[in-house]
Design a protein around this nucleic acid. Structure first.
Lengths: 206, 206
DNA sequence: ATTTGGTTTAACCAATTGGTCAAAGATAGA
DNA sequence: TCTATCTTTGACCAATTGGTTAAACCAAAT
Protein backbone atom coordinates (compact mmCIF):
# COMPACT_ATOMS: atom_id res chain seq x y z
CA UNK A 1 0.00 0.00 0.00
CA UNK A 2 1.54 3.33 -1.01
CA UNK A 3 1.94 6.21 1.39
CA UNK A 4 -0.57 8.44 -0.32
CA UNK A 5 -3.23 5.77 -0.23
CA UNK A 6 -2.61 5.01 3.38
CA UNK A 7 -2.90 8.51 4.75
CA UNK A 8 -6.12 9.24 6.53
CA UNK A 9 -8.47 6.30 6.25
CA UNK A 10 -11.20 8.32 7.88
CA UNK A 11 -11.20 10.80 5.01
CA UNK A 12 -11.12 8.03 2.42
CA UNK A 13 -14.24 6.59 4.02
CA UNK A 14 -16.04 9.92 4.09
CA UNK A 15 -15.16 10.52 0.45
CA UNK A 16 -16.47 7.11 -0.57
CA UNK A 17 -19.59 7.58 1.55
CA UNK A 18 -20.30 10.93 -0.11
CA UNK A 19 -20.10 9.31 -3.52
CA UNK A 20 -22.25 6.29 -2.80
CA UNK A 21 -24.88 8.02 -0.69
CA UNK A 22 -25.40 10.78 -3.25
CA UNK A 23 -25.55 8.30 -6.12
CA UNK A 24 -27.83 5.71 -4.54
CA UNK A 25 -29.66 7.46 -1.71
CA UNK A 26 -29.68 6.37 1.91
CA UNK A 27 -31.80 3.25 1.50
CA UNK A 28 -30.03 2.23 -1.71
CA UNK A 29 -26.60 2.51 -0.12
CA UNK A 30 -25.15 -0.60 1.54
CA UNK A 31 -22.25 -0.36 3.96
CA UNK A 32 -20.36 -2.89 1.85
CA UNK A 33 -20.58 -0.56 -1.17
CA UNK A 34 -18.90 2.22 0.78
CA UNK A 35 -16.21 -0.14 2.07
CA UNK A 36 -15.54 -1.37 -1.47
CA UNK A 37 -15.37 2.15 -2.87
CA UNK A 38 -12.94 3.16 -0.11
CA UNK A 39 -10.92 0.01 -0.65
CA UNK A 40 -11.20 -1.11 2.96
CA UNK A 41 -12.84 -3.64 5.20
CA UNK A 42 -16.45 -3.26 6.32
CA UNK A 43 -15.40 -3.55 9.96
CA UNK A 44 -13.18 -0.53 9.51
CA UNK A 45 -16.19 1.46 8.50
CA UNK A 46 -17.84 0.78 11.82
CA UNK A 47 -14.58 1.51 13.60
CA UNK A 48 -14.61 5.10 12.34
CA UNK A 49 -18.37 5.66 12.01
CA UNK A 50 -20.32 3.63 14.47
CA UNK A 51 -23.48 3.26 12.40
CA UNK A 52 -24.95 3.83 8.96
CA UNK A 53 -27.21 6.52 10.39
CA UNK A 54 -24.25 8.42 11.81
CA UNK A 55 -22.31 8.19 8.55
CA UNK A 56 -25.37 9.26 6.59
CA UNK A 57 -25.86 12.23 8.90
CA UNK A 58 -22.28 13.33 8.28
CA UNK A 59 -22.69 13.07 4.53
CA UNK A 60 -26.04 14.81 4.47
CA UNK A 61 -24.78 17.66 6.65
CA UNK A 62 -21.78 18.05 4.35
CA UNK A 63 -23.92 18.04 1.20
CA UNK A 64 -26.44 20.50 2.58
CA UNK A 65 -23.68 22.71 3.95
CA UNK A 66 -21.89 22.74 0.60
CA UNK A 67 -25.13 23.65 -1.13
CA UNK A 68 -25.96 26.40 1.36
CA UNK A 69 -22.43 27.80 1.28
CA UNK A 70 -22.73 28.21 -2.49
CA UNK A 71 -26.04 30.01 -2.23
CA UNK A 72 -25.94 32.40 0.67
CA UNK A 73 -22.59 34.21 0.97
CA UNK A 74 -22.56 35.41 -2.61
CA UNK A 75 -24.49 38.61 -1.88
CA UNK A 76 -22.12 39.71 0.84
CA UNK A 77 -19.83 41.83 -1.33
CA UNK A 78 -20.44 45.44 -2.41
CA UNK A 79 -21.02 44.92 -6.11
CA UNK A 80 -24.04 46.23 -7.95
CA UNK A 81 -27.09 44.01 -7.43
CA UNK A 82 -27.34 42.96 -11.05
CA UNK A 83 -23.66 42.06 -11.03
CA UNK A 84 -24.15 40.05 -7.86
CA UNK A 85 -27.05 38.23 -9.47
CA UNK A 86 -25.05 37.40 -12.56
CA UNK A 87 -22.08 36.23 -10.52
CA UNK A 88 -24.31 34.08 -8.39
CA UNK A 89 -26.05 32.38 -11.29
CA UNK A 90 -22.78 31.65 -13.04
CA UNK A 91 -21.14 30.39 -9.88
CA UNK A 92 -24.06 28.28 -8.76
CA UNK A 93 -24.67 26.76 -12.16
CA UNK A 94 -21.05 25.68 -12.52
CA UNK A 95 -21.21 24.15 -9.06
CA UNK A 96 -24.31 22.19 -10.05
CA UNK A 97 -22.81 20.91 -13.28
CA UNK A 98 -19.75 19.76 -11.35
CA UNK A 99 -21.88 18.17 -8.58
CA UNK A 100 -25.05 17.06 -10.32
CA UNK A 101 -26.03 14.51 -7.66
CA UNK A 102 -25.94 16.76 -4.61
CA UNK A 103 -29.22 18.64 -5.15
CA UNK A 104 -31.09 15.47 -6.09
CA UNK A 105 -29.70 13.72 -3.05
CA UNK A 106 -30.78 16.50 -0.69
CA UNK A 107 -34.26 16.87 -2.17
CA UNK A 108 -34.84 13.15 -2.43
CA UNK A 109 -33.88 12.43 1.17
CA UNK A 110 -35.92 15.35 2.50
CA UNK A 111 -39.01 14.06 0.74
CA UNK A 112 -38.90 10.61 2.36
CA UNK A 113 -41.51 9.88 5.00
CA UNK A 114 -40.03 6.92 6.84
CA UNK A 115 -37.30 7.45 9.44
CA UNK A 116 -36.21 10.76 7.94
CA UNK A 117 -32.98 11.83 9.62
CA UNK A 118 -32.35 14.45 6.93
CA UNK A 119 -35.48 16.42 7.79
CA UNK A 120 -34.45 16.58 11.44
CA UNK A 121 -31.04 17.93 10.46
CA UNK A 122 -32.56 20.73 8.41
CA UNK A 123 -34.63 22.01 11.30
CA UNK A 124 -31.48 22.57 13.38
CA UNK A 125 -29.67 24.39 10.57
CA UNK A 126 -29.70 28.15 10.94
CA UNK A 127 -29.78 28.89 7.23
CA UNK A 128 -32.13 31.71 6.30
CA UNK A 129 -32.61 34.31 3.62
CA UNK A 130 -32.72 37.46 5.73
CA UNK A 131 -29.71 38.94 3.96
CA UNK A 132 -31.21 38.47 0.52
CA UNK A 133 -34.50 39.84 1.81
CA UNK A 134 -32.76 42.99 3.01
CA UNK A 135 -30.82 43.48 -0.22
CA UNK A 136 -33.94 43.23 -2.34
CA UNK A 137 -35.77 45.73 -0.13
CA UNK A 138 -32.88 48.18 -0.46
CA UNK A 139 -32.82 47.81 -4.24
CA UNK A 140 -36.52 48.46 -4.41
CA UNK A 141 -36.07 51.64 -2.38
CA UNK A 142 -33.24 52.69 -4.65
CA UNK A 143 -35.59 52.09 -7.57
CA UNK A 144 -33.19 49.76 -9.38
CA UNK A 145 -35.69 46.88 -9.53
CA UNK A 146 -39.44 46.55 -9.92
CA UNK A 147 -41.42 47.52 -6.80
CA UNK A 148 -43.65 44.43 -6.90
CA UNK A 149 -40.71 42.02 -6.60
CA UNK A 150 -40.86 39.71 -3.60
CA UNK A 151 -37.44 38.54 -2.42
CA UNK A 152 -38.61 35.05 -1.48
CA UNK A 153 -40.27 34.46 -4.83
CA UNK A 154 -37.29 35.82 -6.72
CA UNK A 155 -34.85 33.59 -4.87
CA UNK A 156 -36.97 30.49 -5.40
CA UNK A 157 -37.28 31.29 -9.10
CA UNK A 158 -33.54 31.70 -9.55
CA UNK A 159 -32.74 28.46 -7.73
CA UNK A 160 -35.51 26.74 -9.65
CA UNK A 161 -34.15 27.77 -13.03
CA UNK A 162 -30.64 26.64 -12.06
CA UNK A 163 -31.35 23.35 -10.33
CA UNK A 164 -34.14 21.74 -12.30
CA UNK A 165 -32.39 21.20 -15.64
CA UNK A 166 -29.61 19.44 -13.75
CA UNK A 167 -31.72 17.03 -11.73
CA UNK A 168 -34.06 16.40 -14.64
CA UNK A 169 -31.22 15.52 -17.01
CA UNK A 170 -32.16 11.81 -17.26
CA UNK A 171 -35.60 12.81 -18.48
CA UNK A 172 -34.63 15.82 -20.57
CA UNK A 173 -32.01 13.97 -22.60
CA UNK A 174 -34.35 11.25 -23.94
CA UNK A 175 -37.65 13.15 -24.05
CA UNK A 176 -36.57 16.63 -25.11
CA UNK A 177 -33.31 15.99 -26.95
CA UNK A 178 -34.00 12.53 -28.41
CA UNK A 179 -31.10 10.92 -26.48
CA UNK A 180 -28.62 13.42 -27.91
CA UNK A 181 -26.36 14.12 -24.92
CA UNK A 182 -24.37 16.71 -26.87
CA UNK A 183 -27.53 18.69 -27.46
CA UNK A 184 -28.14 18.68 -23.71
CA UNK A 185 -24.58 19.77 -22.94
CA UNK A 186 -24.88 22.56 -25.44
CA UNK A 187 -28.18 23.58 -23.88
CA UNK A 188 -26.55 23.73 -20.45
CA UNK A 189 -23.65 25.77 -21.82
CA UNK A 190 -26.10 28.48 -22.83
CA UNK A 191 -28.19 28.11 -19.71
CA UNK A 192 -26.47 30.87 -17.75
CA UNK A 193 -27.29 33.53 -20.34
CA UNK A 194 -30.84 32.25 -20.64
CA UNK A 195 -31.45 32.42 -16.90
CA UNK A 196 -29.93 35.87 -16.60
CA UNK A 197 -32.18 37.14 -19.37
CA UNK A 198 -35.26 35.68 -17.69
CA UNK A 199 -34.34 36.99 -14.26
CA UNK A 200 -33.42 40.46 -15.47
CA UNK A 201 -36.74 40.61 -17.32
CA UNK A 202 -38.48 39.67 -14.10
CA UNK A 203 -37.03 42.48 -12.03
CA UNK A 204 -36.60 45.23 -14.64
CA UNK A 205 -38.38 48.53 -13.87
CA UNK A 206 -40.99 49.31 -16.54
CA UNK B 1 -64.72 -8.47 5.52
CA UNK B 2 -67.19 -6.17 3.76
CA UNK B 3 -67.94 -6.52 0.08
CA UNK B 4 -66.34 -3.25 -0.91
CA UNK B 5 -63.09 -4.12 0.80
CA UNK B 6 -62.97 -7.55 -0.76
CA UNK B 7 -63.44 -6.53 -4.35
CA UNK B 8 -60.28 -6.63 -6.43
CA UNK B 9 -57.28 -7.42 -4.28
CA UNK B 10 -55.00 -6.80 -7.23
CA UNK B 11 -56.07 -3.18 -7.42
CA UNK B 12 -55.74 -2.74 -3.67
CA UNK B 13 -52.15 -3.95 -3.95
CA UNK B 14 -51.33 -1.65 -6.84
CA UNK B 15 -52.83 1.29 -4.97
CA UNK B 16 -50.78 0.52 -1.86
CA UNK B 17 -47.66 -0.03 -3.94
CA UNK B 18 -48.11 3.33 -5.65
CA UNK B 19 -48.33 5.04 -2.29
CA UNK B 20 -45.36 3.36 -0.64
CA UNK B 21 -43.03 3.41 -3.64
CA UNK B 22 -43.63 7.09 -4.31
CA UNK B 23 -43.21 7.98 -0.65
CA UNK B 24 -40.10 5.90 0.09
CA UNK B 25 -38.48 5.17 -3.25
CA UNK B 26 -37.67 1.72 -4.61
CA UNK B 27 -34.85 0.85 -2.21
CA UNK B 28 -36.70 2.30 0.78
CA UNK B 29 -39.83 0.30 0.07
CA UNK B 30 -40.15 -3.13 1.70
CA UNK B 31 -42.66 -5.66 0.42
CA UNK B 32 -44.06 -5.95 3.94
CA UNK B 33 -44.88 -2.21 3.93
CA UNK B 34 -46.97 -2.64 0.81
CA UNK B 35 -48.71 -5.69 2.24
CA UNK B 36 -49.50 -3.80 5.44
CA UNK B 37 -50.79 -0.77 3.57
CA UNK B 38 -53.02 -3.01 1.44
CA UNK B 39 -54.19 -4.91 4.51
CA UNK B 40 -53.12 -8.27 3.15
CA UNK B 41 -50.55 -11.02 3.55
CA UNK B 42 -47.08 -10.70 2.06
CA UNK B 43 -47.51 -13.98 0.18
CA UNK B 44 -50.53 -12.54 -1.56
CA UNK B 45 -48.33 -9.79 -2.94
CA UNK B 46 -46.13 -12.35 -4.65
CA UNK B 47 -49.20 -14.21 -5.85
CA UNK B 48 -50.30 -11.19 -7.88
CA UNK B 49 -46.92 -9.60 -8.65
CA UNK B 50 -44.16 -12.14 -8.84
CA UNK B 51 -41.32 -9.89 -7.72
CA UNK B 52 -40.53 -6.49 -6.27
CA UNK B 53 -38.92 -5.47 -9.55
CA UNK B 54 -42.08 -6.33 -11.50
CA UNK B 55 -44.28 -4.43 -9.07
CA UNK B 56 -41.93 -1.47 -9.13
CA UNK B 57 -41.94 -1.46 -12.91
CA UNK B 58 -45.75 -1.34 -12.90
CA UNK B 59 -45.78 1.56 -10.47
CA UNK B 60 -43.07 3.51 -12.27
CA UNK B 61 -44.76 3.06 -15.63
CA UNK B 62 -48.02 4.26 -14.13
CA UNK B 63 -46.40 7.29 -12.49
CA UNK B 64 -44.49 8.28 -15.61
CA UNK B 65 -47.52 7.71 -17.78
CA UNK B 66 -49.69 9.84 -15.52
CA UNK B 67 -47.09 12.60 -15.61
CA UNK B 68 -46.71 12.42 -19.38
CA UNK B 69 -50.46 12.32 -19.95
CA UNK B 70 -50.79 15.56 -18.02
CA UNK B 71 -48.10 17.29 -20.01
CA UNK B 72 -48.45 16.35 -23.64
CA UNK B 73 -52.07 16.20 -24.78
CA UNK B 74 -52.95 19.67 -23.53
CA UNK B 75 -51.88 21.43 -26.72
CA UNK B 76 -54.07 19.27 -28.93
CA UNK B 77 -57.12 21.54 -28.94
CA UNK B 78 -57.68 24.58 -31.18
CA UNK B 79 -57.47 27.35 -28.59
CA UNK B 80 -55.22 30.34 -28.89
CA UNK B 81 -51.63 29.52 -27.90
CA UNK B 82 -51.60 31.83 -24.88
CA UNK B 83 -54.86 30.30 -23.70
CA UNK B 84 -53.40 26.83 -24.13
CA UNK B 85 -50.36 27.83 -22.13
CA UNK B 86 -52.46 29.25 -19.32
CA UNK B 87 -54.70 26.17 -19.25
CA UNK B 88 -51.69 23.90 -19.18
CA UNK B 89 -49.97 25.69 -16.32
CA UNK B 90 -53.12 25.75 -14.24
CA UNK B 91 -53.91 22.12 -14.96
CA UNK B 92 -50.40 20.86 -14.41
CA UNK B 93 -49.88 22.83 -11.23
CA UNK B 94 -53.07 21.52 -9.67
CA UNK B 95 -52.03 17.99 -10.62
CA UNK B 96 -48.69 18.51 -8.90
CA UNK B 97 -50.21 19.90 -5.73
CA UNK B 98 -52.56 16.92 -5.61
CA UNK B 99 -49.71 14.45 -6.34
CA UNK B 100 -46.61 16.04 -4.84
CA UNK B 101 -44.63 12.79 -4.61
CA UNK B 102 -44.92 11.67 -8.22
CA UNK B 103 -42.36 14.03 -9.81
CA UNK B 104 -39.85 13.50 -7.00
CA UNK B 105 -40.30 9.74 -7.31
CA UNK B 106 -39.70 9.77 -11.07
CA UNK B 107 -36.68 12.07 -10.92
CA UNK B 108 -35.14 10.33 -7.94
CA UNK B 109 -35.38 6.86 -9.46
CA UNK B 110 -34.06 8.00 -12.82
CA UNK B 111 -30.99 9.50 -11.15
CA UNK B 112 -29.97 6.26 -9.44
CA UNK B 113 -26.92 4.50 -10.85
CA UNK B 114 -27.28 0.97 -9.46
CA UNK B 115 -29.68 -1.48 -11.09
CA UNK B 116 -31.80 1.27 -12.58
CA UNK B 117 -34.95 -0.31 -14.00
CA UNK B 118 -36.61 3.08 -14.33
CA UNK B 119 -34.05 4.38 -16.81
CA UNK B 120 -34.59 1.34 -19.02
CA UNK B 121 -38.33 1.93 -19.02
CA UNK B 122 -37.93 5.53 -20.17
CA UNK B 123 -35.92 4.55 -23.22
CA UNK B 124 -38.76 2.40 -24.48
CA UNK B 125 -41.38 5.12 -23.94
CA UNK B 126 -42.32 6.94 -27.11
CA UNK B 127 -42.95 10.29 -25.44
CA UNK B 128 -41.60 13.24 -27.39
CA UNK B 129 -42.24 16.93 -27.84
CA UNK B 130 -42.68 17.11 -31.59
CA UNK B 131 -46.21 18.49 -31.26
CA UNK B 132 -45.10 21.32 -28.98
CA UNK B 133 -42.17 22.01 -31.31
CA UNK B 134 -44.52 22.36 -34.26
CA UNK B 135 -46.94 24.61 -32.39
CA UNK B 136 -44.18 26.98 -31.34
CA UNK B 137 -42.84 27.16 -34.88
CA UNK B 138 -46.30 28.01 -36.17
CA UNK B 139 -46.78 30.74 -33.58
CA UNK B 140 -43.44 32.27 -34.49
CA UNK B 141 -44.47 32.33 -38.16
CA UNK B 142 -47.77 33.95 -37.19
CA UNK B 143 -45.76 36.50 -35.26
CA UNK B 144 -47.65 35.96 -32.00
CA UNK B 145 -44.50 35.14 -30.02
CA UNK B 146 -40.90 36.26 -30.04
CA UNK B 147 -38.85 34.94 -32.95
CA UNK B 148 -35.91 33.86 -30.81
CA UNK B 149 -37.99 31.46 -28.69
CA UNK B 150 -36.81 27.86 -28.76
CA UNK B 151 -39.58 25.35 -28.10
CA UNK B 152 -37.40 22.97 -26.11
CA UNK B 153 -36.12 25.70 -23.82
CA UNK B 154 -39.58 27.14 -23.33
CA UNK B 155 -41.05 23.78 -22.39
CA UNK B 156 -38.25 23.03 -19.93
CA UNK B 157 -38.68 26.44 -18.33
CA UNK B 158 -42.40 26.00 -17.88
CA UNK B 159 -42.05 22.54 -16.37
CA UNK B 160 -39.20 23.81 -14.21
CA UNK B 161 -41.23 26.66 -12.77
CA UNK B 162 -44.14 24.33 -12.01
CA UNK B 163 -42.34 21.31 -10.60
CA UNK B 164 -39.50 22.69 -8.52
CA UNK B 165 -41.46 24.53 -5.81
CA UNK B 166 -43.40 21.29 -5.22
CA UNK B 167 -40.45 18.94 -4.87
CA UNK B 168 -38.44 21.50 -2.91
CA UNK B 169 -41.24 22.06 -0.39
CA UNK B 170 -39.34 20.44 2.52
CA UNK B 171 -36.51 22.89 2.01
CA UNK B 172 -38.55 25.95 1.08
CA UNK B 173 -40.82 25.78 4.13
CA UNK B 174 -38.01 25.92 6.73
CA UNK B 175 -35.41 28.00 4.88
CA UNK B 176 -37.53 30.49 2.96
CA UNK B 177 -40.71 30.65 5.01
CA UNK B 178 -39.31 30.04 8.51
CA UNK B 179 -41.37 26.86 8.98
CA UNK B 180 -44.61 28.70 8.26
CA UNK B 181 -46.54 26.15 6.18
CA UNK B 182 -49.41 28.57 5.64
CA UNK B 183 -47.02 31.02 4.02
CA UNK B 184 -45.92 28.24 1.65
CA UNK B 185 -49.51 27.28 0.83
CA UNK B 186 -50.32 30.90 0.13
CA UNK B 187 -47.25 31.14 -2.06
CA UNK B 188 -48.38 28.11 -4.05
CA UNK B 189 -51.88 29.54 -4.42
CA UNK B 190 -50.42 32.53 -6.24
CA UNK B 191 -47.90 30.45 -8.15
CA UNK B 192 -50.04 30.01 -11.26
CA UNK B 193 -50.34 33.75 -11.86
CA UNK B 194 -46.64 34.22 -11.16
CA UNK B 195 -45.60 31.56 -13.66
CA UNK B 196 -47.94 32.86 -16.33
CA UNK B 197 -46.52 36.35 -15.94
CA UNK B 198 -42.96 35.06 -16.24
CA UNK B 199 -43.72 32.87 -19.23
CA UNK B 200 -45.71 35.53 -21.06
CA UNK B 201 -42.85 37.96 -20.50
CA UNK B 202 -40.49 35.39 -21.98
CA UNK B 203 -42.37 34.97 -25.24
CA UNK B 204 -43.90 38.44 -25.74
CA UNK B 205 -42.99 40.18 -29.00
CA UNK B 206 -41.10 43.38 -28.30
C1' DA C 1 -72.27 -33.65 -2.09
C1' DT C 2 -68.24 -33.36 -4.63
C1' DT C 3 -65.07 -31.55 -7.55
C1' DT C 4 -62.64 -27.80 -9.59
C1' DG C 5 -60.66 -23.36 -9.79
C1' DG C 6 -58.94 -19.41 -7.96
C1' DT C 7 -57.64 -17.07 -3.48
C1' DT C 8 -55.45 -16.55 1.05
C1' DT C 9 -52.55 -17.87 4.76
C1' DA C 10 -48.74 -19.46 7.87
C1' DA C 11 -44.50 -21.59 7.96
C1' DC C 12 -40.37 -21.65 6.01
C1' DC C 13 -35.86 -20.55 3.33
C1' DA C 14 -31.64 -18.50 1.57
C1' DA C 15 -29.39 -14.31 0.90
C1' DT C 16 -28.41 -9.85 2.43
C1' DT C 17 -27.41 -6.49 5.74
C1' DG C 18 -25.96 -3.66 9.74
C1' DG C 19 -23.21 -4.50 13.31
C1' DT C 20 -19.88 -6.97 16.91
C1' DC C 21 -15.67 -9.08 18.61
C1' DA C 22 -11.45 -11.00 19.50
C1' DA C 23 -7.23 -11.41 17.62
C1' DA C 24 -3.47 -9.86 14.56
C1' DG C 25 -0.62 -5.85 12.79
C1' DA C 26 1.40 -1.69 12.93
C1' DT C 27 3.42 2.34 15.44
C1' DA C 28 5.54 5.18 18.58
C1' DG C 29 7.24 6.12 23.25
C1' DA C 30 9.74 4.44 27.48
C1' DT D 1 13.45 -4.11 23.31
C1' DC D 2 9.21 -3.99 25.45
C1' DT D 3 4.87 -2.22 25.91
C1' DA D 4 0.79 0.42 25.32
C1' DT D 5 -2.16 2.31 21.95
C1' DC D 6 -4.16 2.67 17.62
C1' DT D 7 -5.49 0.43 13.27
C1' DT D 8 -7.05 -3.41 10.44
C1' DT D 9 -8.93 -7.83 9.57
C1' DG D 10 -11.82 -12.10 9.20
C1' DA D 11 -15.08 -14.71 11.44
C1' DC D 12 -19.32 -14.35 13.27
C1' DC D 13 -24.30 -12.88 14.64
C1' DA D 14 -29.10 -11.52 14.73
C1' DA D 15 -32.47 -9.24 12.18
C1' DT D 16 -34.41 -8.17 7.89
C1' DT D 17 -35.83 -9.12 3.39
C1' DG D 18 -37.47 -11.04 -1.07
C1' DG D 19 -39.34 -15.05 -2.24
C1' DT D 20 -41.35 -20.18 -2.06
C1' DT D 21 -44.48 -23.83 -0.81
C1' DA D 22 -47.93 -26.64 0.74
C1' DA D 23 -51.98 -26.58 2.78
C1' DA D 24 -56.40 -24.30 3.95
C1' DC D 25 -60.31 -21.73 2.26
C1' DC D 26 -64.06 -20.58 -0.62
C1' DA D 27 -67.26 -19.99 -4.36
C1' DA D 28 -69.33 -21.91 -8.37
C1' DA D 29 -70.23 -25.65 -11.47
C1' DT D 30 -71.31 -30.68 -11.82
Amino acid sequence: MSDKEKINTEEKILEAAKEVFTEEGKAGTKMQMIADRAGINKSLLHYYYRSKDKLFASVFKFAFGKMASKIFPIFENDDHFLTQLEQFIENYLSFLVKNPFIPMFILSELNKKHNNIAAELIINSDVNIDLFDAIVKKEIQKGTIKKSIKAKNLLINILTLCVFPVIAKPIIVPVVFNNDSDAYNNYMKNRKDEIIEIVFDMIRVE
